[in-house]
């Protein structure tokens, strides 16, 4: 792979600005034999097709809402495409317009984390990634994009972002503050020499009184089992499992008094497929849950798993049993 990886932000006010930056980027890929993707809104698909004319046949179009549905799954799928292209001596070239609208605060942070981690995860693939950010987005979103992308496109020119931060620095800063404490009425279980079977029974009893869909419950059970197994193997007692509900989310937290020292071991980058002693535990946990929050320090380690649930019309008496 001779081409260098690039990850650039394209801020735009009007659709024409986006087209001015995107069209040369796409055409360069079509002419160069790249695998070219345009992941934007349907309206932008129409504009791009119109401007590209016959060249549009060399572009695969995807909708942002579906492409950017889940942070870890997005990263896994897109990275797989980039690696496949590299293996075929091709380059993956993506014009992306991440779906920032209607995201909650925590979700925004996870997507910003993905933008930062992209610089580490895709570095070896030689992929060319151009991310369009509307200036109508909340100011913090556009500002953050200048910290997570090494370069900004202005017209046809790529300029270095002075505020760019190394991916792991940026990531650590996202996690520098403490997590808000669990609510007083969380359902707590002290984990002694547990048979993991009983922990799953406990989580299942809680989740079955919420509208969490069955397949998400199965994902949660695999994720909780993995996190508790890690705490039992590598952590320090006491180990506590806590469950509670937040608006639109089921939250499951595992705390122990151990301290992780390897900051890159948070499962943020997909590991290479197994075939030796491939450990993909935390990475898989991120795929299984909506959001995973990790804090580790002298006071102990907390892994908080969040799963989206359909809206709950009235508070359920989940802790009343």
């Amino acid at each position: 792979m001779s081409q260098a990886f690039s990850h650039r932000v394209l801020p735009y006010d009007r659709a024409d600005d986006l087209l001015d930056g995107a069209l040369p980027f796409l055409r360069e890929g079509i002419e160069g034999g790249d695998r070219v993707l345009a992941v934007t809104t349907l309206a932008m698909h129409m504009l791009l097709r119109d401007k590209l004319g016959a060249d549009a046949a060399g572009v695969e179009f995807f909708e942002s809402d579906k492409w950017y549905a889940h942070p870890a799954r997005y990263l896994a799928d897109t990275l797989a495409l980039a690696e496949t292209a590299a293996w075929q001596k091709r380059r993956l070239r993506v014009l992306g317009e991440p779906a920032w609208a209607r995201r909650g605060e925590l979700e925004l942070l996870e997507w910003q984390r993905v933008e930062a981690i992209t610089n580490a995860a895709f570095a070896e693939t030689g992929a060319a990634l151009l991310c369009a950010y509307s200036r109508s987005l909340p100011a913090g979103v556009v500002a953050a994009s200048r910290q997570t992308h090494p370069e900004t496109m202005r017209g046809q020119v790529a300029l270095s972002n002075p505020g760019y931060q190394e991916p792991w620095t940026y990531n650590a800063r996202l996690d520098s503050g403490p997590l808000p404490p669990p609510p007083d009425d969380s359902l707590d279980l002290d984990i002694q020499v547990a048979d993991l079977y009983w922990i799953r029974a406990y989580v299942t009893d809680f989740a079955r009184r919420t509208p969490l869909p069955e397949d998400d419950l199965q994902r949660l059970l695999v994720a909780v089992t993995e996190v508790v197994t890690n705490a039992l193997r590598h952590g320090q007692p006491p180990i506590t499992l806590r469950l509670w509900l937040e608006p639109g989310e089921l939250v499951c937290e595992v705390t122990d008094h151990g301290h992780w020292t390897d900051r890159t071991g948070f499962g943020l980058i997909p590991p290479k497929p197994a075939g030796g002693a491939g450990r993909f535990g935390l990475w898989a946990v991120r795929l299984l849950c909506s959001i995973v929050q990790i804090r580790t320090g002298r006071d102990g380690t907390t892994v908080r798993l969040r799963l989206q649930i359909p809206a709950v019309p009235v508070p359920l008496p989940v802790n009343s049993a």
């Binding site: 799954r73 896994a76 797989a80 069955e214 397949d215 199965q218 994902r219 695999v222 997909p270 590991p271 497929p273 197994a274 075939g275 491939g278 993909f280 898989a284 795929l287 299984l288």
Partner: peptide, 17 residues
């Protein structure tokens, strides 16, 4: 079916063979 859900979420390619 519940195990297939997990395999598909994690990705079969992570578990070659």
């Amino acid at each position: 079916v519940q195990l297939r859900t997990i395999m598909e979420t994690v990705g079969w390619h992570m578990l070659p063979g």
